[in-house]
Design a binder for these strands. Structure first.
Lengths: 223, 223
DNA sequence: CAAAGAAAATGTGGATACAGTAAAGGAATT
DNA sequence: AATTCCTTTACTGTATCCACATTTTCTTTG
C-alpha cells in the first residue's frame, strides 16, 4: 500500500522522444548528424524498442529522416521554416481566436487571464524562462479551447517548432510587454464575444512577432 | 545470387498503416470500435510490431485514441472536421499556389498540365475512381512544388482526410468539369508567374468545393 | 599495384518472450 | 443484498532475438 518506486511516471518512448526532440531543436544534434537506434539506446540506457518508436514519431514531424536500413539523420529546422510558420499562423491563428470568442465559457477565459497575469508577474521579475513558457501557454490554451480538432492539431504542431524563436523574440527590448498587451487585447475581444475583432487582433499579434523576429535574424545569418 | 522472393517490396508497418487508415476513413471500422494490437495482428497475419507502429502513427493523426494498457478506439472524422479542413485550406492553399507561381520550373508546370489532361480524359470516360484520384494528384503535386516544408506538411495532412468527400463532390452534376476549369485557371496564373492571381483562383476553388460539399451534406445528416 | 569479390561489421525490419497494469468477475465478509 | 478483496484475463510496455540489407574492409588475383 505504500508508494512504489514510480520514478518513471510516464512511458519510456515518450521520454526518449522528448529528449531527442529537445536535443534536435536546441541544436545539440547538428543538422545532418547520423543517429543509430543502438547508439541512442545505449546513451539513454534503454532498449531499442522505445528509441525506434521515438524516431518514427520524429520522422512524422520531419525532424529526422529515416533511411531504410541505413539509420536516421537529423534535419532540424531552418529560418525559412520559421518564416513560413509565422506566415501560416498569421492566416489561421486568427480563426482559432474567433472560434474561442464565439464559444468559450467564461471560466475558460478566466484561465487565459490567469496566464496573462502570470506572464506579467514573471516579466516584472525578469524570469525569462518562465516568461517564455507562459507566453507559450497562452497560445496552447487557446488551441485547446477552439473546439476544432484540425485547428488544434495544426497550431499545436506549428507551435512546437518555434519555442526557441519565441524565446529570442521576447528577450528584445520591450517586446515582452508589448506582447502581453496584444494578448490582453485579444482576450478582451473574446470576452466581448466579438469574433471578428479577436481574429484581427490575433492576426496582428502574430504578424508583429514575425516582424520582430525578422529584425533579429537580419544580419545574423546563423541557423 | 538469383532473384529472391521479394514479394514484400515495401515494409509491413506501412502496409498495415495504409490498411487500417483506409478501414477507418471508409467507415469499415465504426467510430468508437475497439482495436487491439493482437487482434489486428492476427487478422492481417503479421506480428504485433508493425501493428503497434501503425497504431501510433494513426494516433498522431488523431484517427484513433490510444489508451495505455487498454487498447485503441477508433475516432474517425466528422462533418465538422471536414468543414474546418476546407476553411483552413481556403486560407492557406492559396499561399502554396502563390509560391508555386513564383518559383516553379516550366517542367513542373508541365506535369500539372498532364495531370489536368488526364483528369479531363477520365471525366469524358466517366471513370470516377480515376477522376477522383487525378483531382487529388493535382493538389498533391502542387504541395510538392511549393518549396515550403511546413506548407507541404500541413496541406498533405489535411488532404489525406478528405478523400471520400472529394469523391462525393466530384460526382455531383457538372462539378467535375467546373473543378477542372478552376484548376486550369490556377495553372494559367502560375504560367504567367502571377502569385496574387494564382492565390486568388486557388482560394476560390477551395471555397467552391466547400460550398458544393455543404449542399451535399445538407439534409443528409449521416456521418 | 589495381580491381574484383569475399567476408566482416553495422544497422534496421520484424517476431517473440516476458513483465507489469487495468478491468472484470467471483468469493468472502458484513 | 451490498461491499470489499482477490484472482483471472486481456491487454500493452519493454527487452531481446533472428533475418536480411548495406557498407566497409580485407584478401586474392591478374
Amino acid at each position: 500500500m505504500e508508494t512504489k518506486e514510480t520514478t518513471r511516471s510516464i512511458n519510456l518512448t515518450e521520454r526518449v522522444y522528448q529528449e531527442l526532440r529537445e536535443s534536435i531543436l536546441s541544436g545539440k544534434y547538428a543538422e545532418g548528424a547520423a543517429l543509430t537506434e543502438l547508439g541512442i539506446a545505449k546513451a539513454l540506457d534503454v532498449s531499442r524498442t522505445p528509441v525506434r518508436e521515438a524516431l518514427h514519431q520524429l520522422e512524422q514531424e520531419e525532424l529526422v529522416e529515416l533511411r531504410p536500413n541505413r539509420g536516421a539523420i537529423v534535419k532540424g529546422i531552418t529560418i525559412d521554416d520559421i518564416r513560413d510558420i509565422y506566415e501560416i499562423r498569421s492566416l489561421i491563428e486568427g480563426l482559432a481566436a474567433a472560434r474561442v470568442a464565439e464559444q468559450a465559457a467564461p471560466e475558460e477565459l478566466d484561465q487565459l487571464e490567469e496566464t496573462l497575469d502570470l506572464t506579467q508577474f514573471y516579466l516584472e521579475r525578469e524570469n525569462y524562462e518562465k516568461l517564455e513558457s507562459m507566453d507559450g501557454r497562452f497560445h496552447q490554451q487557446l488551441y485547446e479551447m477552439c473546439r476544432s480538432r484540425m485547428l488544434r492539431r495544426i497550431l499545436k504542431d506549428l507551435h512546437n517548432y518555434v519555442g526557441r524563436s519565441r524565446g529570442a523574440s521576447l528577450k528584445t527590448e520591450g517586446r515582452a510587454q508589448e506582447s502581453i498587451k496584444e494578448h490582453r487585447r485579444v482576450l478582451e475581444a473574446m470576452r466581448a464575444h466579438d469574433p471578428e475583432l479577436a481574429k484581427e487582433y490575433m492576426t496582428q499579434h502574430v504578424l508583429n512577432t514575425r516582424t520582430n523576429l525578422q529584425r533579429i535574424y537580419q544580419g545574423q545569418q546563423e541557423k
